[in-house]
């Protein structure tokens, strides 16, 4: 290693960040976890003038969560399933559409720059503006989609009024927003594959499908794994789009864990229970990240 070992200087340079992280991230994180063992609500949470007066309740919140999970009719379980559907469907379309378009953009065609710029638009537009644009297009009476359906003589669709269509609608918005990031990342991956590999394959008489299968896919794997993993974490945590487009409705049908936890905290003011949701979300993502690091490591072993 040619870089100097210099712990003292390194820590001087690191001090500001370490202090900020300790005060603004780790302290609140520990606090947040500890709240999940309390009965905190809006009356006992304290304020600038009043000291907090919430009490420890041990595992009560966790028991309640578990009980509602195994209950015959359970909103919490529905939300959990919706979170998984939401995450899987979104990332699936982000990846497949993103890969398809990246492969097309990777070809040497006329107007590639223009296509690329246009395809980046959903990413460049602030996400809340994108959400509002779709909200307007979904409008029952005057929205673009229903007017279009009417003009074609078809029945209109209750985009945001029906639990199935609301999920479809909000997923379409999130797919629209998320595809550009995938295109950029995968295009970067494709461009880093040396042309000489394809040339050698062509000389050996490999078909385009064989080239794709045996050169493109394996060499793209590390980038693809990283991008989809980040995608899964971001989608799992995606609060804005759901909150802005459907607000979790109708009747919880598009609620995911983070929006549900937020509602529990800042609408129902069950801060203790909401913190328990927070811990559940944290555990999910931690387990996922650990598995992901494993996959990445075994991935590297395959490549080198």
């Amino acid at each position: 290693m040619r870089y100097p070992k210099n712990t003292w200087i390194a820590y001087v340079f690191l001090t500001p960040v370490l202090v900020v992280m300790a005060v603004l991230v780790f302290y609140p994180l520990i606090k947040g976890i500890s709240y999940s063992f309390t009965n905190m609500n809006q009356y006992n949470m304290g304020s600038k003038f009043i000291d907090p007066s919430y009490e420890w309740v041990g595992l009560k919140n966790y028991k309640e969560l578990f009980r509602s999970f195994i209950a015959p009719k359970s909103v919490f379980r529905d939300v959990l399933i919706q979170t998984l559907i939401w995450t899987f469907v979104n990332v699936f379309f982000h990846f497949t559409i993103g890969l398809g378009l990246a492969l097309l953009l990777h070809r040497k065609i006329k107007g590639r720059g223009i296509y690329r710029t246009l395809l980046m638009v959903p990413w460049a537009v602030p996400s809340f503006v994108g959400a509002f644009a779709w909200l307007w297009m979904y409008n029952d009476k005057y929205g673009f989609f229903n007017l279009m359906l009417k003009q074609m003589g078809l029945a209109t669709i209750p985009w945001l009024g029906d639990s199935f269509w609301a999920m479809v609608s909000v997923i379409m918005v999130n797919v629209w927003i998320g595809v550009p990031f995938m295109i950029v990342t995968l295009l970067g991956g494709l461009q880093s594959i040396p042309d000489s590999l394809y040339e050698a394959a062509r000389i050996d008489g490999a078909s385009s499908w064989q080239q794709f299968r045996h050169i493109t896919l394996p060499l793209l794997r590390p980038v693809a794994v990283t991008a989809t993993t980040l995608g899964i974490i971001w989608t799992f945590n995606m609060f804005n789009i759901i909150y802005l487009v459907t607000a979790g409705g109708p009747i919880h049908s598009t609620e995911i864990l983070v929006t549900y936890a937020y509602r529990e905290a800042f609408r129902n003011w069950n801060l203790g229970l909401a913190s328990t949701y927070g811990v559940v979300i944290l555990s999910f993502l931690l387990v996922f990240t650990l598995i992901y690091r494993r996959v990445l490591k075994s991935n590297q072993e395959v490549n080198y």
């Binding site: 290693m1 870089y3 100097p4 070992k5 210099n6 712990t7 200087i9 390194a10 820590y11 340079f13 690191l14 370490l18 992280m21 991230v25 302290y27 609140p28 994180l29 606090k31 947040g32 709240y35 949470m45 304290g46 907090p52 980040l230 974490i233 945590n237 609060f239 983070v258 936890a261 937020y262 905290a265 800042f266 801060l271 909401a274 913190s275 927070g278 979300i281 944290l282 993502l285 931690l286 990240t289």
Partner: peptide
């Protein structure tokens, strides 16, 4: 630089980058 605890700091940064506001919002609000 190479220094003691570098790996942990990097991992910590990665993890906090992955867990956004939704988790910290209650303690931050308080």
């Amino acid at each position: 630089f190479r220094f003691f605890g570098k790996k942990w700091i990097e991992l910590g940064l990665l993890i906090t980058q992955m867990f956004p506001g939704a988790l910290l919002i209650i303690p931050l609000y308080l």
